[in-house]
């Protein structure tokens, strides 16, 4: 989807996007990362819960059709950052964002953004598989129906396409009317991915998507992510550094200091981050010598 189209669909009322210079953080925009288009552009982003600053001054580019992993110890603000990208933090009372997050030139933090539409473009998969207590078929069609898609053949087509895309079709095609809760954990998580795909997002956010899965199911989801990255922009939060190293193209390392405010320490190509990080704190974390 082009930037203009996207802007028209997520902004409540079409408006001219003010052209203003954007300061670029020193820790982003390494030469080798400039090759891909940028899908999400966070600049001087800070998030507060009430008076407490959760993350501060994060400037980060999320590249189009690539997997960006956000790693860091517990409490460093990585999930907070992820939730900014589809405004899930709006659901938390007193959560407040400062700075700017652009998607295709539009500041998605703006008050004129229709967050329901935004979340259609920026889907999310959670840590624990959370299928709705309904059939496999209804899980996948739930989103499209909410967005007004009608007609059995059209919905059937969406179900087949999304389940195939989520590498689940062959396993469930004969039991589409069976309850989703009866599936294995790995299947449930792939169903959640299929459900996210059904509303045709551009970006898929994944918050620890494999932490509740066994190694085999984890690898299936990782394979699926790699496959999806050809068409979608994926941002994954993970505690599993091996997973970040295996699947992602870019890695962002966040860390909270003693004041417990999460900051972006280093961002770059995953290969470089895991073989020769430039910041000592990144080095200490990924070699297991942190804290």
């Amino acid at each position: 989807m082009s930037g203009t189209l996207l802007a028209e669909t997520i902004v409540r009322e079409p408006r001219a996007v003010a052209a203003r210079p954007i300061a670029i953080g020193a820790n982003v925009q390494r030469d080798e990362t400039a090759a891909r288009d940028v899908r999400l552009r966070a600049r001087q982003l800070s998030v507060r819960y009430g008076t407490a600053l959760a993350i501060s001054d994060v400037s980060l580019d999320v590249h189009d059709r690539a997997i960006t992993a956000i790693i860091g110890p517990s409490g460093c603000g990585k999930s907070t950052l992820l939730r900014v990208f589809n405004r899930m933090n709006d659901l938390i009372p007193n959560a407040r964002c400062e700075g700017r997050v652009e998607m295709d030139g539009v500041d998605i933090l703006g008050s004129d953004i229709d967050v329901v539409k935004l979340r259609r473009h920026v889907g999310m998969v959670f840590q624990k598989p959370n299928p709705f207590p309904m059939s496999i078929y209804d899980n996948v069609t739930y989103g499209p129906r909410q967005h007004g898609v009608r007609g059995k053949s059209k919905l059937d087509g969406i179900v087949e396409q999304c389940l195939k895309r989520a590498a689940l079709w062959d396993e469930v095609k004969d039991r589409l009317r069976a309850p989703a809760m009866g599936m294995s954990g790995g299947q449930q998580q792939r169903l959640c991915i299929a459900r996210a795909l059904a509303v045709e997002p551009n970006v898929i956010l994944m918050d620890e998507p494999c932490s509740a899965l066994d190694p085999r199911a984890t690898l299936k989801v990782e394979d699926l992510m790699t496959d999806l990255a050809r068409d979608y922009t994926i941002v994954i939060v993970t505690h599993n550094m091996q997973q970040a190293a295996r699947v992602s193209h870019y890695t962002a390392f966040m860390l909270a200091g003693e004041e417990r405010v999460g900051r972006l320490v280093e961002f770059g190509l995953t290969e470089a981050m895991f073989t020769a990080p430039t910041d000592k704190r990144t080095e200490d974390y990924i070699t297991g010598r942190f804290g």
């Binding site: 190293a245 073989t275 070699t287």
Partner: peptide
């Protein structure tokens, strides 16, 4: 031990 970064090097 799955070494990374300097350890791997």
């Amino acid at each position: 031990q799955q070494p990374m970064a300097a350890d791997l090097r």
